[in-house]
Design a protein around this nucleic acid. Sequence first.
DNA 1: CAGTGGTCTAGACCACACT
DNA 2: GTGTGGTCTAGACCACTGC
Lengths: 274, 274
Amino acid sequence: MVTPPSLTAAPDSPPASAGAVGVGAPTAVPILASPSFSPLYQQIKTLILRSLQNGEWRPGEAIPSEIDLAARFKVSQGTVRKAVDELAAENLLVRRQGKGTFVATHAEEQVQYRFLRLASDVAAAAVPGSTHREFLDCRRLPAPADVAAALHLRPEDSVVEVRRVLHFTGQPVVLDDIWLPAHLFKGLTAERLSEYRGPMYGLFESEFGVRMIRAEEKLRAVSADEGVATLLKVAPGAPLLSVERLAFTYGDQPVELRRGLYRTDRHYYRNELS
Amino acid sequence: MVTPPSLTAAPDSPPASAGAVGVGAPTAVPILASPSFSPLYQQIKTLILRSLQNGEWRPGEAIPSEIDLAARFKVSQGTVRKAVDELAAENLLVRRQGKGTFVATHAEEQVQYRFLRLASDVAAAAVPGSTHREFLDCRRLPAPADVAAALHLRPEDSVVEVRRVLHFTGQPVVLDDIWLPAHLFKGLTAERLSEYRGPMYGLFESEFGVRMIRAEEKLRAVSADEGVATLLKVAPGAPLLSVERLAFTYGDQPVELRRGLYRTDRHYYRNELS
DNA sequence: CAGTGGTCTAGACCACACT
DNA sequence: GTGTGGTCTAGACCACTGC
């Protein structure tokens, strides 16, 4: 008999000082959040996540080195490493050997358009050839019921509604309707959207401090109604790919609902299964 | 000066005995495949992959314990662990604490329909409610040019062509045309397909030794032609989701081309972005 | 050169599953 | 209890980047 199973409270466990708990002896003493066991590296991961959320490190910046983090959390470098590994696997951090570990961003070089899965039938490269964004509308309005439900808003909350068209090589391909919680995006206008160079999520990061972490999409095939047909320059009734996206920021909080209609006569939506 | 950079040939490196290379001293001595450096755990990963491909361990079976593998490859348990971790992340292996590490399979409990991304608008659960598979056709024929190209076959090779309809809760939802290299699927008939309980890829594993590892899909919206409309019980011209899948086995070898048409009036194709 | 992430080892202990 | 994967540590060395 040593310790009761699945409850390994250290006899001399110190009061939770800064969050994580150190080890006294050469043996690890994981802190226990109570009945549910949580490994040390998971707790470290949560702490790093919190710092990311708090904006302690901004997108694109380097976070402290593993050695520094290990000292700060009073754990071994290997434990920090495992936490960072998982955050990198979730695309929240980016490791660069010899340089450091950086906060992921949508507003950067290669990994642009992380969430856009459209590819061209002809162009070998992805989409970014000659892209043009046309913003048709940007207004504040009370949240429609379905939008409020998806974004976890109250019926009296308001949202920003954006409508835009994406053109590739001169052709309209994507029509997006986008809803954002108005209280998070004060001052968002069609003009600022038009002026900004780079992906929309980059602007959201730098101007509003809202970082898109992950998203869920629901795809369907639909027929173009007349208004949509005109905007996308297809015949009424033409088949379009409907992509409904719910995007989340830290803590699985939904912060964007997007309903897109894609022309798929010259492009396709690519996906990888494994 | 110790060793020339990026070329760390061990002075006493033994001839590649069984594959991996041991360490003489308490210090690791990674073998080098030549100019391109490859960490030890990557080499171990390749060796495990080879054993999987050779069928040394069958789908669903347990592979040797980490300790055994470490002894076999003459590396530390930690190095084996990292190799296995990556293979588990790629869904080739499944770790089960306390029990062992198992070869992933499509023919098993929960993880069934790993590659089917359809979800129902109503049913909370995924699809597997009341599913019925109807096989319309299964024949051998010379590979059409596009199919041959996708599957890396020569024009004179032949393929097995399968046509089937998937029904959920009594309704036809999916029409699939499937092409398989005939030389890998000798003896595949509509009857055997109908008799088999469980996912098609499960039958491919157990009966033909072909394991689907990953797949690429291209999605588009299309209009139903008359033949398809009849089979899926929709109006001609109705929008359908077109899903073209190329599935790969070990070594990125393509072994299945599938063209699916999905009704998306009561179901949708779900996807996760991160 | 120093600093960063990346690899590897050896050993201890914990959580889980079976018998 | 035994054996499995899971966690944690400490220390050594390697590879890459930039001063």
